[in-house]
């Protein structure tokens, strides 16, 4: 784990001696003036400490506000003069650590950092199949602020209604048209409830995009309920004579956003993976999560997902089958 300390006091490094020697950590010291420029580029759960010694109250306040908005790193303050007014307030604002005079003198230990990591969960950042880390670009909450041609990080959900050929054979073309049309309505309603958008849809399959934020665990939960409650949707909402089976693949990655219908020229490694995994890896009736999204599985249902191998350099988890025969 990388630990970045922003301080103008070279001697501060001594208090982190134990960390410097520990094999799981790498330590970088940089001047406070480089804080914002460096931090902007960090997004992989690194730990950053800012030394607030010799700063006035207004300056400290400004830095605290800025750091509390950083989502993809863990933050801590170093306060050798114990000047911070309310330490508990810092933790409410999402800080992971506060090192006052006493703690500093005792020296910062690897154990303390490990405890920090447990205290504040930090989602793993998206990675590319070649192992390179992608920069997570938090999308705005409103779709109106998402600009055409700009790259954002999205939760990408592929959904397919399975056994379509078999159903077509048994119930006819008109039935398929009706059922997929109705199902699409239900699917879109559910996507909208999570601030998502249907990106494309073709007869029985399509992709929905959800701007990446801290709520992506809710999308996983929604997918689990979609599969589990399929009998209720099929019989009561779709009035289908057979229970519909779905394949869902959920991935987290970057994509240059283009509107529905104008996606022909979109080149995205993440979208490629989603399609490849859906068409080549996913077995019908299953629900898969890529390694980028699986850290967001709500803890309450994490036991329902199992490791299911690798595909194109990514590891995948699969939801356990329901009522297996």
């Amino acid at each position: 784990m990388e630990i970045h300390i922003f301080t103008d006091n070279d001697k501060l490094k001594e208090y982190f001696r134990e960390i410097e020697g520990a094999k799981d950590f790498s330590l970088t010291l940089a001047p406070v003036s480089s804080f914002k420029n460096t931090v902007k580029k960090l997004n992989h759960c690194e730990m950053i400490y800012l030394d607030i010694d010799k700063m006035d109250e207004a300056e400290i306040k400004k830095y605290i506000a800025y750091m509390s908005r950083l989502e993809f790193v863990r933050c801590g303050l170093i306060d050798p003069s114990d000047s911070a007014n309310s330490v508990s307030h810092l933790f409410h604002m999402g800080f992971s650590d506060y090192i006052g005079k006493k703690e500093l003198k005792a020296g910062v230990t690897p154990q303390r950092i490990a405890e920090n990591m447990q205290f504040k969960a930090c989602h793993l950042p998206p990675v590319r199949s070649d192992g390179a880390k992608l920069r997570a670009i938090k999308a705005p909450n409103s779709w109106n602020s998402i600009k055409e041609g700009k790259e954002y990080t999205f939760s990408m959900l592929f959904l397919r209604i399975d056994r379509i050929k078999e159903m077509k054979k048994n119930f006819g073309h008109k039935f398929i048209e009706q059922i997929t049309g109705k199902y699409l309505g239900l699917f879109e309603k559910s996507i909208n409830a999570h601030n998502g958008k249907l990106w494309n849809w073709d007869i029985n399959k399509g992709v929905a995009l959800f701007p990446y934020n801290e709520n992506c665990g809710d999308i996983i939960l929604s997918g689990y309920r979609f599969i589990r409650d399929s009998i209720l949707f099929s019989a009561e909402y779709l009035h289908s004579p057979v229970k519909l089976e779905f394949t869902i693949v959920l991935h987290l990655g970057n994509l240059e956003y283009h509107k529905r219908g104008e996606t022909g020229t979109t080149v995205s490694e993440s979208m490629n993976l989603l399609y490849h995994a859906s068409e080549l890896m996913a077995k019908p009736g299953n629900y898969y999560l890529s390694q980028n999204i699986s850290p967001h599985i709500p803890g309450e249902i994490s036991d329902l997902f199992i490791e299911d191998g690798e595909f194109e350099g990514y590891s995948f988890m699969r939801m356990k089958k329901i009522n297996p025969s």
Partner: peptide, 29 residues
Amino acid sequence: DEIVANELKPVTTEGIPEFYFYRLSWEER
């Protein structure tokens, strides 16, 4: 309807079952 009946399993497999059941079970591994 068949779609719902298919979700239920007979309590006994010998002869005509008197009862059927439904349970939410998960793949074991």
